[in-house]
Amino acid sequence: MPETTGPDTSGPDDRDGMSYAVPDDLRAVRAFVTERAHALGMAEARIDLLALAVSELTTNTLQHTTGGGHIRVWVSDGRLVCDVVDRGTERPFGRAMPSAEAVRGRGLAIVERVCDAVYTTAVPEGTLVRICLNL
């Protein structure tokens, strides 16, 4: 089970990030995250996990909040760190995987299982979800 305590909300400046607002932006978000992870030295198999987690979080933003979101990616202490900030409320983590028959509800459970750490906290813009994957 990944860590889920609140993060220090500091990170790189916005040059290391991008905003997204509509479903057509999701392809660009995945490309941005993949390119940043390559440039920062992440192994290919880990990049696929990162892209999956980011896709789940950003899709969640567009389905359940208004105004889109912003994503930042950088490396700190041997981990690739990715913040997803949106105008939603804090998300409950520490959840069980929904049954195979469930229509919805797997996104955050998947994020928790593919990341080495997951943190969430309220920020002035709404909610920050920070995912970390060991390089």
Rank of each mutant, 00 (worst) to 15 (best):
E3D: 15
T5I: 12
G6S: 14
D8W: 12
T9P: 06
S10G: 03
D16H: 15
G17Y: 02
S19P: 12
V22P: 00
P23R: 03
P23N: 04
D25V: 14
A28L: 14
A28C: 13
F32N: 01
R36N: 08
H38P: 01
A39M: 07
A39H: 09
A39T: 10
L40E: 13
G41D: 02
A43P: 12
A45I: 02
R46H: 09
L50N: 12
L52Y: 07
L52R: 12
V54R: 08
V54W: 05
V54Y: 04
V54M: 05
T58P: 06
T59Y: 09
G68S: 03
I71H: 05
W74T: 07
L80N: 07
V81L: 06
V84G: 00
R87C: 04
G88V: 14
E90F: 07
R91G: 02
R91N: 04
F93P: 00
F93Y: 06
G94S: 05
R95Q: 12
M97D: 10
S99H: 10
S99C: 01
A100G: 12
A102W: 12
A102K: 06
R104Y: 10
R104E: 14
R104Q: 12
R106C: 00
L108T: 05
I110C: 07
R113G: 03
V114P: 00
C115W: 11
A117M: 13
Y119E: 14
T120K: 05
T120R: 08
V123Q: 06
V123D: 05
G126E: 08
G126K: 13
T127F: 07
L128V: 04
V129I: 15
C132D: 09
C132E: 15
